[in-house]
C-alpha cells in the first residue's frame, strides 16, 4: 500500500517501453522515458504523451481509448492488459514496464502480430450456421430467441478480440497451432446460440489435435480478460458439448424458428399536429 501512496504523490513516472524496429534491429530492447504524472492518467495516456512530446517513432495501436475496440492490449508490468483501461495508480508503482503482448510475433515496438488470432477465429466459423439456406440467403424475418436462450451465450459475445487471453494462456506460450482461448470461447458462443445448427461442423474443427483438449483449465485467460468474458468457462462448456456430440449423447434440439409475420397491422397512432405540419 505504501508504494501505492507513493505513486499518488509522484510527480514523474518512468516508462520502460519495448522497442523493436524491424528494418534495423535483430532483437528488441527497452527504452526509458520519464514523463509527468497527472492524476487519473492511464498507461495509454502516458504512451500518447511520449509519442506527442518525446519520440514520435514509438508505435502502438489505439483507437477508442475506452476499452471498446480491443486495439491496445500490451504486457504492462508483466501482465497482459488494455493500456487504455489501466490507470497508472492501479499499478501502484512509478516505474511502468510496457512490452508487446507475448505469444504473438512483434511487428514493431508494441504492435503484436494478431493475424494468427484472427485466422483461428475465422477457422471456427464465427457466424450462425443453418440448414435452411434459402432463409439465410433471402431472410423473410428474424429468428426468434427467448431472453433465457440469450443468456446462454450473451456473456461470451462481449469479446473484443484484443488477444489478451492468448498472451495469458500457458498452452499458447509454446503451441503456435493451438486454436487459443479466444476462438474456442467463440466456438461455444455460436454452438450455444439457439438459432445455430453448427455444433457438428464446429466439433469437427475443435475436436482436433491442437483444439479444445489442449486447454488445461489454468483459467489465466479469464483472469486476464478485460471484458469479463470468461473464456475458460466457455471452453469447459464447449468440451461438454463436443463430448456429447461425439459420444452421441446430445439431445436433438430444433433451432429457433423464423418469427411469424405480425397477425394484423396495428393501427398507426395519429401523428401529432405540431410535427406533421412541418
Amino acid at each position: 500500500m505504501t508504494e501505492k501512496e507513493k505513486s499518488l504523490t509522484a510527480e514523474e513516472l518512468t516508462f520502460r517501453v519495448q522497442r523493436y524496429e524491424p528494418t534495423r534491429d535483430e532483437k528488441s530492447h527497452l527504452q526509458e522515458f520519464v514523463i509527468p504524472f497527472t492524476k487519473g492518467m492511464t498507461v495509454l495516456d502516458g504512451l500518447n504523451y511520449i509519442k506527442e512530446k518525446i519520440d514520435n517513432t514509438l508505435a502502438f495501436r489505439t483507437s477508442c481509448r475506452m476499452g471498446i475496440c480491443g486495439s491496445c492490449g500490451m504486457l504492462i508490468n508483466g501482465l497482459p492488459k488494455l493500456a487504455c483501461h489501466t490507470p497508472v495508480e492501479e499499478l501502484g508503482k512509478d516505474v511502468v514496464e510496457i512490452k508487446s503482448l507475448p505469444n504473438y510475433g512483434i511487428i514493431k515496438d508494441l504492435i503484436p502480430d494478431l493475424i494468427p488470432l484472427f485466422e483461428s477465429h475465422k477457422a471456427i466459423k464465427p457466424y450462425i450456421l443453418r440448414s435452411d439456406s434459402e432463409e439465410m440467403e433471402e431472410p423473410t424475418a428474424e429468428y426468434t430467441q427467448s431472453p433465457q436462450e440469450l443468456e446462454e451465450y450473451l456473456q461470451f459475445s462481449y469479446c473484443v478480440k484484443c488477444g489478451i487471453c492468448l498472451a495469458a494462456c500457458p498452452t499458447s506460450a509454446t503451441d503456435v497451432l493451438f486454436l487459443g482461448p479466444q476462438s474456442l470461447a467463440q466456438a461455444y458462443r455460436y454452438c450455444a446460440d439457439s438459432r445455430d445448427e453448427g455444433v457438428r461442423e464446429r466439433t469437427a474443427i475443435v475436436d482436433s489435435g491442437h483444439g479444445v483438449w489442449l486447454c488445461h483449465l489454468a483459467g489465466a485467460c479469464s483472469e486476464a480478460c478485460p471484458k469479463g468474458v470468461d473464456p475458460a468457462l466457455a471452453i469447459q462448456l464447449l468440451k461438454r458439448t463436443v463430448l456429447a456430440q461425439t459420444l452421441r449423447l446430445r439431445k436433438k434440439k430444433e433451432p429457433s424458428l423464423v418469427a411469424p409475420p405480425p397477425a394484423e397491422e396495428k393501427p398507426k397512432l395519429p401523428v401529432p399536429e405540431f410535427t406533421a405540419k412541418r
Partner: peptide, 29 residues
C-alpha cells in the same frame, strides 16, 4: 518486414511462471 515479425513466445518457461495469476493457474503447473 511484413513476413517476419519478431518471435515473442514465452516458451516452456511460460508454463511454469507467468506473473501473479489465480491459484488455478499454478495448479495447472
Amino acid at each position: 518486414v511484413k513476413k517476419k515479425p519478431l518471435k515473442n513466445y514465452l516458451g516452456i518457461w511460460g508454463w511454469v511462471w507467468a506473473g501473479r495469476y489465480n491459484v488455478e493457474r499454478y495448479l495447472y503447473t
